[in-house]
Design a protein around this nucleic acid. Structure first.
Lengths: 132, 132
DNA sequence: GTTTATGCAAATTCTTTGCAATACT
DNA sequence: AGTATTGCAAAGAATTTGCATAAAC
């Protein structure tokens, strides 16, 4: 029940994953990351590195429309506070998921409900694909 | 690539699943449904019945915060048109997911984006639990 | 009688766990 | 030295596929 006191440590896998996510500027699934790592890193190692990055507030999990789990860079988070109420956009043409930073959905629930967290997935055609 | 021409047919499993979902008034996972069917129906049969019900526009899939797939009754859908832009509410106390009908999230995406579909998961405490 | 639904076995995919070896600080 | 990371093997959960039998229309 007690929190594991784990010091953050750099690791080849974590660094590499982060730079991939930075470069692609979109959410990627475990599978994609493994491929982009040239299959040179063990599946399990990738799972664990992703978990640690999530714990450290560096990336966050996004579950796509079809239930596929993906990971994206966190821009406004740290280990203590997470802010993922922004919209995730799934482009049906280029099949990518990306974060629309600074756009939060507004809504009014019926009386009696208390809101803690919001996850919003919007699908459609992204800026890039629309301008082709 | 061609659509399977399947006539809709009644079946014990489909009917039973529908009445369970109607009665519970919340989204249920495959697992829950199997249990509520007293484990008397084969896992695979349930998966297939759920798929068919989704195709027929009778129920829709909801993927919860933690990636658990659940199914809920459709109130405004048919085989041709689906309207699931309403909010799905996940209560962290009673651990249920339910549809908040008629509440759609509003947001404004940057120029260039075209919206086709919206899926919004809100977690918090539901009306029932808040009034206890 | 033709098509769809069911049950069983088996295969796939995704994810997690245990453990020994290695790397980081 | 002490703790976190890695790789491998193996287990576990969720979902899908194939095929023969049963049921619906």
């Amino acid at each position: 029940m007690d929190k594991k006191i784990k010091r953050e440590r750099s690791s080849a896998t974590k660094t590499h994953i982060l730079s991939i996510l930075e470069e692609k500027k979109q959410a990627l699934a475990h599978k994609d990351i493994q491929l982009l790592l040239d299959n040179s890193v063990d599946r399990v190692t990738i799972y664990r590195a992703l978990d640690r990055l999530v714990d450290e507030g560096k990336i966050h999990k996004v579950t796509g429309m079809e239930g596929i789990v993906q990971y994206a860079i966190c821009h406004n988070c740290n280990k203590e506070e997470h802010h993922h109420n922004h919209i995730h956009f799934h482009c049906v043409q280029c099949e990518t998921i990306s974060c629309i930073e600074n756009v939060e959905p507004k809504f009014k629930l019926p009386d009696g409900y208390t809101v803690e967290n919001v996850q919003c997935m919007v699908s459609g055609v992204c800026k890039n694909c629309n301008s082709l």
